[in-house]
């Protein structure tokens, strides 16, 4: 189970759709190789969210809209959240490359079409069962995400793709 405080990535009370990788992590910081340094640039090009790195706490969970992470293949757009300590991202849908990058880096990522309809607001504490996809608030299921596939879970449990590779024959 993943337990954490929620940030709904909203504008005007609605989840923002189509947040691209340049909004998450601008291309002017792409030369940075040290993951720790990436944390301070998370959402650094997303209007209204530029101070997110100062407000986020280790273990927080992001709830995002449609097509989150569309755009480029940059791993930075995932690593900046890992480096901030974000425990999971629940979204209506994700850019395909973004979803891969997250799974490979051991960041829990779950698709849930109806997450905007669930009774969850920013600041709530939720629990996520990544094997069943169930999302709990106060011990009650408030939403159900698509469970991660077998291989995705194996990579997540190994820690990341590199650790997984070490166990491969």
């Amino acid at each position: 189970m993943i337990k954490g405080r929620v940030w709904k990535v909203e504008r005007d009370g609605k989840l923002i759709d189509d947040i691209d990788t340049d909004m998450i992590y601008h291309n002017k910081y792409l030369h940075i190789v040290d993951r720790k340094e990436m944390a301070k640039y998370a959402f650094s090009n997303l209007e209204g969210w530029k101070d997110f790195p100062e407000k986020a706490r280790k273990g927080d969970v992001l709830i995002v809209g449609e097509n989150f992470g569309c755009g480029s293949s940059r791993q930075h757009a995932v690593d900046c959240f890992i480096s901030l300590g974000i425990a999971a991202i629940i979204g209506k849908s994700f850019g395909a490359i973004y979803k891969r990058n997250a799974i490979n880096s051991g960041l829990a990522i779950l698709e849930c079409k109806d997450i905007d309809k669930a009774d969850i607001k920013t600041g709530d504490e939720i629990e996520i069962n990544i094997e069943t996809g169930e999302i709990f608030k106060n011990g009650v299921v408030v939403a159900k995400a698509k469970p991660m596939s077998k291989i995705q879970l194996e990579i997540y449990k190994a820690g990341n793709l590199f650790e997984y590779a070490k166990k491969m024959k």
């Binding site: 490359i97 990058n101 793709l161 590779a165």
Partner: peptide
Amino acid sequence: QGMGDVDIAFVFKTGKTWFE
């Protein structure tokens, strides 16, 4: 397919990748 650096490192090392 475009991929991030974690994926590509894995492909360099193993010659394969997972794909849905």
